[in-house]
Simulated assay, not measured.
Amino acid sequence: MKTYLFLLIAVAFETFGSSCLQASQQFTKLWPSLGVLVGFAGAFYFFTLVLKVLPLGITYALWSGIGIILITLSGRVIFGQRLDLPAMLGLGLIIAGILVINLFSKAQAH
Rank of each mutant, 00 (worst) to 15 (best):
Y60P: 03
V36T: 11
S33L: 00
A41Q: 07
G67Y: 09
Q26H: 11
G17M: 11
L49Y: 14
L56D: 01
Q26W: 08
V53L: 00
L8G: 05
L21G: 03
A109V: 14
V53R: 05
L21N: 05
G97R: 09
G90H: 13
L83E: 10
S33H: 00
I98F: 06
T28Y: 04
T3F: 02
I9Q: 13
R76Q: 09
K29T: 08
L99D: 05
A12L: 13
E14P: 07
V53N: 07
V38C: 11
L89Y: 10
S19F: 06
E14T: 08
V53G: 03
Q81K: 15
L93A: 04
G57C: 11
I95F: 05
L70F: 15
M88L: 13
Q108H: 15
I71V: 15
Q26K: 14
A109M: 12
R76D: 03
Q26F: 12
R76N: 10
L83F: 12
Y60G: 11
I71P: 03
A43Y: 02
G17P: 09
L7I: 00
L37P: 03
Q81Y: 14
G57W: 09
F44C: 06
S105D: 06
I94R: 00
L73G: 15
I71L: 15
A10M: 03
L70P: 13
Q108S: 10
L73N: 12
Q25W: 04
L56H: 04
V38T: 11
I66D: 03
G17T: 05
Y45G: 06
V77T: 00
S74Y: 01
T28E: 12
L70C: 15
R82K: 14
I66W: 06
M88W: 14
F13R: 03
G90Q: 10
V100Y: 10
A87F: 06
Q108P: 01
